[in-house]
Amino acid sequence: MKNINGKAAFSGMVTASVTHELQNVLAIIKENAGLMEDILHMNQKDMSGSGDRLQKCIESIKKQTYRGVGLTSGLNQFAHTADHALMQINLYDTVKKLVFLTQRLITKRGVELLLLDSDQSPSITTDPLLFYNLLFLCINYIAEESCPKTVIQVSIPISSIHPAGIQFECNTQDVGSDSSARQISLSPKWIEITKICDQINATADIITEPFGIFLTCS
């Protein structure tokens, strides 16, 4: 954990350990649901109508267990980002993980996130924790500038001009219209974005029509 902020490293270490324990808890729940299912199948004839109801309950336990596994697994991977000062990350995979983990936070703001598929997403070497933070700040910034029910589309455009870039754009036109360049540059949230960009050698530019942010990574 060399060269890593001590607080972030400690937080990451505890979160990674607890999520691992949670996965063990979920595995035990899943295995017990499986055992109940086995016993149910063995005694199906004696169960009359309640067999179907029990099977439905077991299916629900299994479904929610896998949901929990997905979330704890994502959180575990996120926690481990604090282990590395620099790490090679794939842009698409990283955005996908962030969208998965922050979906609830974004939905609370009344907007929706849509990540477009990317087959040829590039990889970059960067500080993974700061990069996650930067992605979230960009999404959060656009969400705050948008009206409710806006869809923020996230894509990884491949071009020779921007070999590693991420585009965040809104699906509506009536957002960001009162955000002149000067207002944006003075906004505390934008200053926060540019500060992180400086730390990881990235640049963020406001785009218009549709309103959004283009992040160039290197």
């Binding site: 063990n24 595995a27 295995e31 055992l35 086995d38």
Partner: peptide, 14 residues
């Protein structure tokens, strides 16, 4: 994880 192991063992024995 004893509870995991014993449950899985029971399922395998079934």
């Amino acid at each position: 994880e004893e509870e995991f192991a014993s449950t899985l063992a029971e399922r395998l024995e079934l």
